[in-house]
Design a protein around this nucleic acid. Structure first.
Lengths: 255, 255
DNA sequence: CAACTTTTGTACGATTTCGTACAAAAGTTG
DNA sequence: CAACTTTTGTACGAAATCGTACAAAAGTTG
């Protein structure tokens, strides 16, 4: 970041660092444009760079034989790629790519590791972030097994909404179907259901969020907990509004 | 482990440690019986002890509003509880309990953290294990979203088979339904399907594995990759046989 | 604006899973 | 062994999702 004022960082992890830790990273950071669909990590290949998103969104996806995929991780300015590195690995069995274009601050794996070895606080923050991403994935496993398509869709919309500016964003049904691992017409119908409830407005290629609380209720506890864990672990607020609706039913846990 | 010969450790992580690292832990380890359904970690409560399983199985489960659950982590002598600690947290939003009775070596959170601060190699091994457990969860998210009940069941059977002695183990359909997050009669029927294919034999409360390769093919790539990652990251072999059948179709990944 | 591409809407039978209920079988206990 | 509990098998209509196909609408391009 030679000629780059550090106070311009829009990535929330970088912002949360102590000034001295930011100074540690700054010389190695390079601002990069993120192009739609650009690959950031390929499964089973060494991770060479880590991207701290400022705008745009990234997805981690897992795929089974035959090529069908599901999104297992989602992040934006709240996070980063390459959490595998933070957890002591050099690669990941999953792909990671740019889901919505934007920009990021990029650092080489080596420089990041050097910096982490020099700052326990930096290491701790990144480890905590890596953990929240894992927790998010775990709730995705729960959602995939337990709630229905329109509810998973509601969850996904909330998660994206938390990470973009404004109340609308751009995606096609086709793309959504890939992320959720379902049929494209299924997404079309599910969006119609959400729209009929007046939780969203949907136009060609665009989704506008109208009623977060309504969407949250649909998720049956699969949205919210992961976001609370993010705030607990990083100390950074996430998203558009408080995470639990006022009238949320208490989570009943088996004895 | 006062009067306990260290060579008797049957936990694979402990066995994989260098002798000096084992010596570091040994004085703090206490052999405990694991009773069926015993709680090992409660969601959102501080983790006080970590259990290195020697026999028996443990499950991490996530639950949504209303109480329905899915298993999001499974381990036995290959692993441990409390990976949250290893990842720099003090608690977890998920419950963890004993799924099949057995025994474990228990250490207090504090003693484990002390030991990790004294040995980078210990820390590394446990971090690597924690990562494999996360990868397992991620494949569970994939399986939950993409493959059908009898296939998920096949995957679960393989995962358990890898972690028990012999080819049979004891579970009720009811319990299996809880782990997979599905109806109990659904499990009964799915087991019949697997039995009709001669992949397993199933009797009241017992499942006998007869054809691992057959089961593996059913999983469509959701079984195997996580297990390979375990071996890559820990250097410890997992399970009953090689993980990928000879005639496995190559995994096709999208460009 | 005509031709084309991309995206969305809709339809329809097939498959999977659900919720629920109840009976049969296996094991346990008095 | 009689009574009871636990576990398993089975049934059946309802709901969810699938795979596929095709048409309509919206946007883009020459």
């Amino acid at each position: 970041m030679t000629n780059q004022n550090m106070s311009t960082f829009k990535n929330h992890l970088l912002c949360a660092l102590a000034p001295e830790d930011r100074r540690l990273l700054a010389p190695s950071l390079e601002r990069m444009q993120l192009n739609l669909r650009q690959s950031l990590e390929k499964a089973h290949q060494p991770i060479n760079f880590v991207y701290f998103f400022e705008t745009g969104l990234g997805s981690v996806v897992a795929s089974k034989e035959g090529g069908s995929t599901v999104e297992v991780g989602l992040f934006g300015r709240d996070g980063m790629t390459g959490t595998s590195l933070v957890q002591g690995d050099t690669e990941s069995p999953f792909d990671c790519f740019v889901q919505m274009g934007g920009s990021a601050l990029r650092i080489s794996a080596g420089n990041l590791q050097d910096a982490m070895s020099q700052s326990a606080a930096l290491t701790e923050l990144l480890m905590h972030y890596a953990r929240t991403l894992g927790i998010q994935t775990t709730y995705t496993a729960l959602a995939n097994g337990q709630i229905k398509l329109e509810e998973r869709l509601a969850r996904w919309i909330l998660m994206v909404h938390d990470r973009v500016n404004g109340d609308s964003f751009y995606v096609t049904h086709e793309f959504l179907a890939m992320m959720l691992g379902v049929r494209r017409p299924g997404v079309t119908v599910a969006l119609q259901i959400l729209e009929a409830k007046h939780f969203i407005k949907s136009q060609r290629g665009e989704i506008l969020v109208q009623d977060r609380t309504g969407l949250m209720h649909l998720c049956q506890g699969t949205y919210g907990p992961a976001e609370i864990e993010y705030e607990r672990l990083t100390g950074i607020p996430l998203g558009k509004s408080k995470l639990v609706p006022d009238d949320a039913a208490p989570l009943i846990r088996p004895a």
